[in-house]
């Protein structure tokens, strides 16, 4: 950690380490009005589609369809309205990892719920037969 740096390096590095000077940071953030209105239209169409598909009996598919549309709408909002499409990798990493850990919570919780019935089929654990239970 000595201060014996040469002049060139000082010149190179007198900016915070977390802060590259030559990045394309100054690309302007906000999206154009046209893009914004197109996203708006997509969101409205998505809402109508949600209601429309929900009014049909698709059996087991109702929820997956609704979720797919919702995820699509959410993605549009995150990418365009929340500027993630134009943001740095760090912001994107935060967004992705929050959903990643959410999926872990869902996935491992349901690893339990989806297999509970199967657990009950193991005779030695749940059988009323005392001999089987002992094993």
């Amino acid at each position: 950690m000595a201060h014996e740096t040469t002049h060139e390096t000082i010149h190179e590095t007198t900016r915070p380490a977390g802060h590259p000077a030559n990045g394309s940071d100054h690309a302007h953030h906000s999206i154009s009005a046209t893009t914004c209105l197109m996203v708006f239209a997509a969101l409205v169409i998505g809402t109508v589609a949600t209601v429309w598909t929900a009014s049909m009996d698709l059996g087991a598919l109702n929820t997956p369809v609704a979720l797919a549309i919702a995820i699509g709408k959410a993605t549009l909002i995150i990418l365009y309205f929340m500027h993630v499409l134009y943001s740095k990798w760090l912001t994107r990493t935060v967004v992705i990892s929050s959903f990643f850990f959410l999926i872990i919570m869902f996935g491992l919780t349901f690893a339990d719920y989806f297999t509970r019935e199967k657990t009950r089929e193991i005779p030695s654990l749940y059988s009323s037969d005392p001999i089987l239970k002992q094993q």
């Binding site: 809402t47 949600t50 209601v51 929900a54 009014s55 049909m56 009996d57 698709l58 109702n62 929820t63 609704a66 979720l67 549309i69 919702a70 709408k73 959410a74 909002i77 995150i78 309205f81 929340m82």
Partner: peptide, 19 residues
């Protein structure tokens, strides 16, 4: 973000019985 949450709440709470 608050908008985003609602986008999931709406189909999951309001529309399960719409058919």
């Amino acid at each position: 973000f608050v908008d985003l949450v609602w986008i999931f709440l709406f189909p999951l709470l309001y529309l399960l019985g719409a058919h």
